[in-house]
């Protein structure tokens, strides 16, 4: 049975030659290229209340943002917490992640940190303890220290930027790594600039307790 409407067929119609990228940007057809991904740090100031972390984690999961690490902890002001996320995304993806995160109601503000931000991660590395002196020497090389020693194991604490932790873990492999735990990156903006704004009276009706320093 013949079904439908009358009119010129799909290929009989005039059609523009332009195209967009999969991310919606108009392009020169000759220059279609895979968008590059970039690794960056987002810092979010959030209300310190139950469920915030679940909302943030759920957002990144359901929108398929590529998240490398997430760390959360209290600030100097007890009603706020700070969440630091390391993500690897395309330029539009980073901007979209920032906007979606900002949109969550318990989120006060979100900043993409500059490359000069201070970022640190902590790792605990438990290795076979057969060569305690060598372990101590390597730990010192990474400005770390042994924090637990047993008859068969040594646990070392290392702090530093993420790539330095990567290098340390690699180095300790020669001793036989039993377990590793890493906190994920924590970061603050360099110098006097505020990492993620939000301690003003417009956000909190009650004045925050007097604190020293950034938070």
């Amino acid at each position: 049975m013949s079904q439908g409407l009358q009119g010129p067929g799909p290929l009989e119609r005039p059609h523009p030659s332009g195209r967009r990228t999969a991310e919606g940007q108009r392009i020169d057809p000759q220059e279609e290229a895979e968008p590059a991904r970039r690794r960056t740090i987002l810092s979010a100031l959030v209300k310190h209340e139950p469920g915030v972390l679940a909302k943030v984690a759920g957002l990144f999961s359901r929108r398929q943002f590529n998240i490398e690490s997430l760390s959360v902890g209290p600030t100097a002001y007890k009603r706020h917490a700070r969440i630091t996320l390391v993500i690897e995304e395309t330029e539009p993806g980073i901007e979209q992640a920032r906007k979606q995160l900002t949109k969550l109601i318990p989120v006060i503000s979100v900043t993409e940190l500059d490359s000069d931000a201070v970022d640190r991660e902590l790792a605990l590395i438990k290795v076979d303890g057969e060569h305690p002196d060598a372990i101590a020497a390597v730990a010192e090389m990474y400005d770390g220290q042994a924090v637990d020693v047993s008859e068969t194991t040594v646990t070392v604490e290392i702090t530093g930027p993420e790539d330095r932790i990567d290098a340390a873990v690699k180095t300790f492999e020669r001793f036989g790594i039993r377990e590793v735990v890493r906190t994920g990156t924590a970061a603050l903006a360099a110098g006097p600039s505020e990492t993620a704004p939000g301690h003003s009276a417009s956000i909190e009706t009650t004045t925050p307790p007097s604190v020293t320093g950034d938070d």
């Binding site: 013949s2 079904q3 439908g4 409407l5 009358q6 009119g7 067929g9 799909p10 290929l11 119609r13 059609h15 523009p16």
Partner: peptide, 16 residues
């Protein structure tokens, strides 16, 4: 699909 290449009928759908 491509909005500009809409099918008006079953027959046109087969052309796509």
């Amino acid at each position: 699909g491509d909005n500009g290449r809409f099918a008006l009928s079953e027959a046109q759908l087969e052309d796509l």
